[in-house]
Write a protein that binds this DNA or RNA. Structure first.
Lengths: 229, 229
DNA sequence: AGCAACTGATGATATATATCAATATATTAC
DNA sequence: GTAATATATTGATATATATCATCAGTTGCT
């Protein structure tokens, strides 16, 4: 497919670390990217496959998840425009250690990892910024692990809802892009339990769970549920 | 305290990423390190404190753990000589997002993070190696999270025992440096449950749990318990 | 329109795991 | 060496959560 975005230099979305590149380096990236369009449900990155590319999410939403034993998935997070999807595997065994699937329609740029390798070596500020990005993701995973381990179901659901509200949509009211099953995959709960907790939260007036959306009514209470575990 | 190790250049332990430094850069590190000795139980790194230093573990063993609500800890892993303890917080909010405590007597070198920052910017190969090290740790945490979420108690204990055997001691028979409580903090189990599972494994001839040590008798069976969950 | 497949919802039941209470054993202190 | 303190062990019980069975909507397909 021909690239439709004019140039990285004028990319309206923009990746944080790319800010540290010179315009020459930007051109280098631009010459080595490949746009792709994905329909909802399609796989952008498959766990286990060689991680030869980073993926820059231009538009749409995707989910990053780990496939465990064929059946059980664990959703690590939702990716929104501007996200640089660059698995840790790229720096270790060159295999993707998670899958990524489109939730909505997605436009993304593939950028060869050799491009990154080159930029890391030649541009220290870029390398440092990349370390920062990777560190932030690693911290998120670590925090998630502790939450899953120590918090009970209501706390975990609260965390997921606040994650969607704060980090993804930036709004107290958002479209529910995840099925109950997927919310369960994110909070390590059976889908039936997700349903029950959401109902309880609705009954106690913390949220309003509309047909296809969620509205956080009492954000303080929700945050308290998160804290108390 | 005066440094007792002659020079990083001839450090018998050696940190992986430091291999990419020139001898001049090595001298720079050497001039900016501070040795410290810790007794068992002493804190090397405190969660929440400013992360102004990396820590190079020269000798001894320590545990890295997250403190949750005062009481509940989660042990992320054991650090052995050669380990570079450099929290993700160093690249983000400059706060340690975990604590580190000595298990045995520990000798370690503090290296200011500004030293790292400088080396990352000036030496691309070093930066890349650091990205690799951080990625590996991040992967470990991710795998741990999935295990904790999807595996049942026997599988989680098996994982912890194989981790100690394979990654820390490199032997089927090793001193049990963690209390049952700590093994529980690592596998997200109550200490009583740890005791029970270990007894069951001993009864079925998979391990021998001596007074202060563990011997893996049937490593295949243990690995099967790990796989089956 | 109508069948198939999926998602959501709900109650009943099963199970894994935590908590509690009590004792035994080891480790440290004086 | 004995008291004191921490850790290990064990059984009984409580609780959180998963699983099962069922039904009601929804969406998609032809």
């Amino acid at each position: 497919m021909k690239n439709t975005i004019e140039s990285c230099l004028h990319c309206p979305v923009g990746c944080k670390s790319f800010r540290y590149l010179t315009s020459g380096e930007m051109d280098f990236v631009n010459d080595n990217r490949y746009e792709a369009l994905f329909r909802p449900g399609e796989i952008l990155v498959k766990q286990g496959s060689p991680s030869s590319n980073a993926l820059f999410l231009f538009s749409g939403l995707s989910k990053t998840y780990v496939e465990n034993n064929g059946s059980k998935n664990m959703i690590l997070g939702i990716d929104k425009p501007g996200e640089l999807i660059l698995g840790q595997g790229a720096f270790t065994e060159m295999r993707n250690n998670f899958s990524v699937a489109a939730i909505t329609s997605v436009k993304a740029c593939f950028i060869g990892f050799d491009v990154f390798r080159h930029l890391i070596r030649s541009n220290g500020a870029f390398a440092e910024s990349l370390l920062e990005e990777m560190s932030m993701k690693s911290q998120l995973i670590q925090n998630r692990m502790v939450s899953l381990a120590h918090k009970k179901m209501p706390g975990r659901i609260a965390e997921a809802l606040l994650y969607l509200s704060d980090s993804i949509f930036g709004s107290h009211s958002f479209e529910m892009i995840l099925s109950r099953q997927e919310l369960g995959d994110m909070t390590n709960m059976a889908k039936e339990c997700v349903v029950r907790i959401l109902r309880e939260m609705e009954e106690s007036g913390v949220i309003k769970s509309d047909s296809s959306g969620i509205r956080i009514l009492d954000s303080d209470k929700l945050r308290m549920i998160l804290e108390k575990g």
